[in-house]
């Protein structure tokens, strides 16, 4: 393809090819501190391409392709090419990852132990992970937790943090401007701005951590917390995984071991300040 970029995010290598220069230039800037794929051979290929040759220039719209594709994935305008690249990488992970049990969760680490936060979209797991990373936690990822069936440890996948709508201002109030990507307005998910993980998170991204606590955060409620039974955690995590079934018995063993050995709590919070306090309290009581 005309333009391309390679990057390693945690233990996973990507190659992104594009019919246009612009998305590649943005990736080069935002991922400048990241290493290249191991052995120069990426795990996955993403392609950003025009549906028809003339659509490279005329009302250019970006189709998302790659090793693994969803036929119904709709194209995005070229101005949102960066988002298309990120969606393409997520898609490869969601559909193609077979080494690690993939859990839709954000992960932060402190003292070698990992805190995993999962829940439906809008529960604020990306925002919480970004804010915790500004308070001494290591950001391991805002989208996917990679559970290693061989070791029971979590691997980091610290891609750009995808901040949406009001959470953009919340994080921008605490972080320097040079850690943000361009403001992408009118995307299918509303306004999006990417937040670059800090240098420490990138430098230590190949270090796994032992899972120590699983949280299910819910935004918009009065502060409350409760324990979650292993069977409920099991069901919720299979629903939060795109490759649980594909991993077969390795996935079953990894997940049953996780839910029977790591405590889980559900926390409700009305605002981010309360959320941070509740996370710290749950962490202290784990």
């Amino acid at each position: 393809m005309n333009h391309q970029f390679s990057v390693a995010i945690g233990p996973v290598g990507f190659r992104i090819g594009s019919d246009w220069r612009a998305p590649i230039a943005q990736l080069e800037t935002l991922y400048r501190a990241y290493p290249k794929p191991t052995d120069g051979v990426p795990d996955f290929t993403v392609r950003l391409f025009a549906a028809r040759p003339w659509r490279r220039v005329l009302r250019p719209s970006v189709m998302i392709g790659g090793d693994f594709v969803l036929p119904e994935a709709a194209p995005l305008p070229l101005a949102q090419g960066l988002l298309a690249a990120e969606m393409g990488m997520n898609l490869q992970m969601a559909l193609g990852q077979r080494r690690y049990l993939l859990l839709h969760a954000s992960v932060v680490e402190r003292d070698g132990e990992a805190l995993m936060m999962t829940g439906v979209s809008g529960a604020g797991k990306s925002t919480l992970a970004a804010l915790l990373s500004l308070r001494g936690w290591r950001l391991m990822g805002d989208e996917f937790a990679l559970l290693d069936p061989e070791t029971g440890q979590l691997h980091a996948f610290p891609r750009l943090v995808s901040l949406k709508n009001t959470s953009i201002a919340t994080v921008a109030a605490e972080a320097p401007a040079d850690r943000f990507g361009p403001l992408l307005e009118g995307t299918p998910k509303g306004t999006i701005r990417h937040f670059v993980p800090d240098a420490h998170a990138i430098a230590t991204m190949i270090q796994p951590a032992r899972p120590a606590l699983i949280l299910f955060p819910s935004f918009g409620f009065e502060p409350a917390a409760r324990d979650v039974a292993p069977s409920e955690v099991f069901v919720r995590l299979t629903q939060a995984s795109t490759n649980y079934v594909a991993l077969g018995e390795r996935g079953f063993d990894a997940l049953t071991k996780l839910v029977t050995s790591v405590p889980a709590r559900a926390i409700d919070y009305p605002d981010t300040a309360s959320a941070i306090a509740q996370v710290e309290a749950a962490w202290a009581a784990r």
Binding site: A229, P230, S231, F234, V235, T238, Y244, V245, G248, E249, F252, D253, T256, V259, T260
Partner: peptide, 22 residues
């Protein structure tokens, strides 16, 4: 079969089908 007791539920992995049952 691989059976793991979680609480009042047990998770059962059926090797012949690759399906998990609770």
């Amino acid at each position: 079969l691989s059976i793991v007791h979680l609480d009042s539920f047990s998770a059962v992995y059926h090797r012949a089908s690759g399906i998990t049952h609770l």
